[in-house]
Structures are given as structure tokens and as C-alpha cells.
């Protein structure tokens, strides 16, 4: 565990640094967007981590927790760690998107479908974190949070479609959109790919760190519990 963390930590710092160097200095500016295009090495990767990786993982771990055969408090902790890190990445996605939007659309914020549904998703998962802070027995809290994560995950496609139909002007997904591939190729494409790998690694590192903190806290509380049990019994014997 410790070793994995170290390797992941070093790798994510190195990859993000490489992404920054390639993205800021090595790659050329874009014909249409000029220097602004450099945000493409940051924003889509952040969004990928926030919207798919973090919340996909949170939902998956929630299901694994609820499934009796795979029930383990580890999945609860993993799920919570993923949401916590995911909320950070959603914040970064919205901030970088906003910085990109100001020169492109002329406004810091627009009620475009993807912006709106991303923001809504962020609020959904803030709700999850709020629920996590409600004092309860660990098992009860784990069950509630797992169910909340699943509810939220199920809500995502509904939110997505309703908001898309509601309004849209965001450009299509850059990597997946076949029409745009000719404009991004060579070094730019590789840097873009690198950014995805870099932020995925960074995400994995952060989640594992967060998970380990939870594990430590938990084992600390187990020690406390043993102590409390002894104290309680002593109280009984003494009287």
C-alpha cells in the first residue's frame, strides 16, 4: 500500500509536470483559438476524471457495498474518497471551463447543457458529503451513503438528457467527435492523451491517500473501542 502510494505519487507529479511543459511551451498555438487552446490539455482531462472516473467509481463501490457478497467497509471508504476527490475535480472543471468560456463565449458562465448538468452533479455530490457528516453508526452511515450515491448516479442520465434538451451550445466532446480529429493531431493529440493519463494517475493517488487516511482513522477508532469496552467492563466490576 505504502509503496503503491509512493509510486503513484511520483508518477502523477511527473506526468502532470510533463503535461504542463508540453501544453504550455512545446505545443503550438491553435489557428482559431490561439493560446486559449492550451486549456484543452487541462479542462477535458479534469472533466473526464470528475464526471466519469470519480462518480463512476463512487457508484460502483456503492453497489459493491450494498451487494451482500461483496459487502465491506472498504468499499464505503473508497466510495466516499472518490466522491470527495471528485468534488474537487468538478470544482476545477467548472473553474477552467469558466476561464475558457469568458474569451470564447464572452461570459464567465452560460446556461449551456454541459455546464449546467456538471454544476448540478457537483451539488448532488455535495449533498452526499453533507449526508456523510450526519452522525450515525458507521454501518448505518455506510448504507445510507451507498444508497445516496446510487440515487445520484441514476439521476445523472436523467439530468443529462433533460438539460441537453433544455438548452445547448457547448462544443461536442473533442476526442470522441470524429469531425474534430483532423484539427488535433501529432504532438497536440499526444499531449491531450497525456493529460488524461496524468490526471487519471493523480486522481488514483489522491483517492488512495484519502482512503488510507480513512483506514487509519478507522483502526484508531477500533483501538478506542477496545479501550472503551475495557473501561465499561471495569465500571461494571468495580460497583
Amino acid at each position: 500500500m505504502r509503496r503503491t502510494l509512493t509510486i503513484l505519487g511520483v508518477a502523477s507529479v511527473a506526468l502532470v509536470a510533463l503535461d504542463v511543459i508540453l501544453g504550455l511551451w512545446v505545443t503550438p498555438p491553435d489557428a482559431d483559438q490561439g493560446e486559449l487552446v492550451r486549456l484543452v490539455y487541462l479542462h477535458p482531462a479534469l472533466a473526464w476524471v470528475a464526471l466519469y472516473l470519480a462518480f463512476g467509481m463512487a457508484a460502483l463501490c456503492a453497489v459493491l457495498y450494498l451487494w451482500p457478497r461483496t459487502r465491506s467497509m472498504r468499499f464505503d471508504r473508497l466510495s466516499a474518497s472518490a466522491v470527495e476527490v471528485g468534488v474537487v475535480f468538478i470544482g476545477l472543471t467548472l473553474i477552467t471551463g469558466s476561464i475558457w468560456g469568458r474569451p470564447t463565449w464572452g461570459v464567465w458562465w452560460t446556461w449551456d447543457a454541459r455546464l449546467t448538468s456538471t454544476a448540478l452533479l457537483g451539488v448532488l455530490f455535495l449533498g452526499y458529503l453533507a449526508l456523510r457528516r450526519v452522525p450515525a453508526d458507521p454501518e448505518v452511515r455506510a448504507r445510507r451513503c451507498a444508497i445516496a450515491a446510487i440515487f445520484a448516479a441514476v439521476d445523472v442520465p436523467i439530468v443529462h438528457f433533460s438539460v441537453v434538451w433544455w438548452q445547448t451550445l457547448h462544443q461536442g466532446a473533442t476526442v470522441l467527435n470524429p469531425n474534430l480529429t483532423p484539427t488535433i493531431h501529432g504532438l497536440m493529440a499526444w499531449t491531450l492523451l497525456l493529460s488524461f493519463i496524468a490526471f487519471t494517475t493523480l486522481f488514483a493517488w489522491m483517492v488512495l491517500m484519502r482512503f488510507q487516511i480513512e483506514e487509519l482513522r478507522e483502526s484508531g477508532e477500533d483501538v478506542e473501542l477496545t479501550r472503551a469496552l475495557e473501561a465499561r467492563r471495569a465500571e461494571g466490576v468495580a460497583s
Binding site: 455535495l126 449533498g127 450526519v134 445516496a148 439521476d155 438528457f161 433533460s162 438539460v163 434538451w165 433544455w166
Partner: peptide, 19 residues
């Protein structure tokens, strides 16, 4: 807690209902 939890979830109902 309930408003914070439920209102984002029912946002599609607001959108679809209004439309």
C-alpha cells in the same frame, strides 16, 4: 438536509414540468 439532498435530484422534474 432534505432540501439540499432532494432539490438537485428533482431538477429534471422542474425542467420537464416547466417545459
Amino acid at each position: 438536509l432534505l432540501p439540499v439532498l432532494v432539490l438537485p435530484v428533482v431538477a429534471p422534474v422542474l425542467i420537464a414540468g416547466s417545459k
